[in-house]
Design a protein around this nucleic acid. Structure first.
Lengths: 180, 180
DNA sequence: TCGATCATGTAACAGGTTACATGATTTT
DNA sequence: AAAATCATGTAACCTGTTACATGATCGA
C-alpha cells in the first residue's frame, strides 16, 4: 500500500502530493489516512522516521523504508493480489429503471459523461508530463505508462457505452409508465 | 443499496441468492452484511418484516418496503451518485516494476487473464439466462442488459491490455537489472 | 451418512471517511 | 488583508471482512 511509495523517502505531505499528481488513477488517500498508516508502519518497524525541525514551523517527518520494510514490499510484490469485489452503484439504478425519473437519469448520465471526459483530459496531461518522449522509455518507465493506457481505454469504453445508453433511452418512449 | 432489492420482498437469504445469481457484476455482499443492514433498515423504519415460523426450522423473516422506504428509494434514485475513488492495487506493482520478480509478474498477469476469461463466460451465461430473446425486451428489461454489456466490454478492454503488457514484458530483456 | 442447501445470527477487527483542530509561510 | 499552501494530528463513525456459532432438511 503505502509501502510502494516508500521507494523514495518523504513526508506524509509529500506522499499526499504524489497521490494527487500522477497517481490519481492508481490510488487515492486522505491525509489522515496517510498519517495514520505511516505511524502504524513505523510502529511495526517497516519504516523509520527522521524529524527535521525547521525553526518555528512544524517539523518535517521524513520516512524511510527499513530492511524489514523492504522485505515486506518484496513479499507483497511476490504474492498475487486477491480479486477485488465488484461494486457499481450506478448499475443498481438500471435495475430500478422504471422508477428512475427520466430527467434525473438523463442528467446523471450526461454528468458522468462530462466527468469521464475530464478524466481523459487529466490522463492526457499526465501523459504529456511524464511520457512525452515515448521512444526513449526504459521498461521500468513503460510500466507506469501501461497503467495510464488502461485507464484511458477503460474510460473510452465507458464513454462509448454511455453514448449507446443515452441513445437507447431517448429513442424509446417507455416513460409513460412511471409506476410510482 | 439494499433498498433496490426490496422492490420485491424476500428474506435475507433470498437477497443473498439474488446477489449471487444475476447481480454479481453489480453488487456483492456477504450474508452477515445483508442481515445487519436489513436489521438497521428495519429499525430506521424503511423496512418492515413478517416472521413466518415453519415448524422446527428457523423462521423465515420476509422483509417488505415501507412507505418511508419507498420514499428513501425515490430520493436515492433522484440524487446523483458521488464518483467512487480509484483503487487499483495491481497498478501499484507496475510502479515498482524493477522490483517485481519476473516470474511472479508473469504468473500474476496470466492468472488475471484467466479470471477475466472466466468472468466473460459468467457474463455469457447470465446473458443467455436472462436476455436470450433480445427482440422482445421492454426498455426496463433492456436496462439491466446494458449493465451486463458494459461489464463485458470493460472485461474485454482489460484482456486486450493484458495481452499487450505481456507481449511488451516478454519482448524486452530488462530483467537483468533486478536491483534488490 | 455425508455434504449441500436453507436460514439465522454475534463479535472482533480492519479500513476508510468526516469532522474537528492548529499554526506558520507564501502568494495574490 | 485574505487565501492558498505547507505540515501535522485526534476522535467518532460507518462499512466491510473474518471468524465463530447453530441447526434443520434434502438428495446422493
Amino acid at each position: 500500500m503505502l509501502i510502494t511509495l516508500q521507494q523514495e523517502p518523504g513526508t506524509g505531505y509529500d506522499i499526499l502530493q504524489r497521490f494527487q499528481s500522477g497517481l490519481v488513477h492508481v490510488w487515492q488517500a486522505s491525509h489522515q489516512q496517510i498519517y495514520r498508516e505511516l505511524d502504524r508502519l513505523r510502529i511495526e518497524g517497516l519504516l523509520r522516521c527522521e524529524t527535521l525541525p525547521q525553526g518555528e514551523r512544524p517539523a518535517r517527518k521524513v520516512y524511510y523504508l527499513t530492511e524489514a520494510g523492504l522485505e515486506a514490499l518484496k513479499d507483497w510484490l511476490a504474492a498475487p493480489l486477491a480479486a477485488g469485489s465488484v461494486r457499481e452503484p450506478l448499475f443498481a439504478k438500471f435495475f430500478a429503471w422504471e422508477s428512475w425519473p427520466v430527467e434525473a437519469r438523463r442528467q446523471e448520465l450526461t454528468e458522468l459523461q462530462e466527468q469521464l471526459r475530464d478524466r481523459l483530459a487529466t490522463y492526457a496531461d499526465i501523459e504529456q508530463q511524464w511520457f512525452s518522449h515515448p521512444e526513449s522509455l526504459t521498461p521500468a518507465q513503460r510500466a507506469p505508462r501501461h497503467t495510464l493506457r488502461l485507464g484511458q481505454r477503460l474510460t473510452t469504453t465507458w464513454l462509448a457505452w454511455l453514448e449507446e445508453v443515452l441513445q437507447d433511452a431517448s429513442s424509446t418512449q417507455d416513460d409513460s409508465t412511471q409506476n410510482f
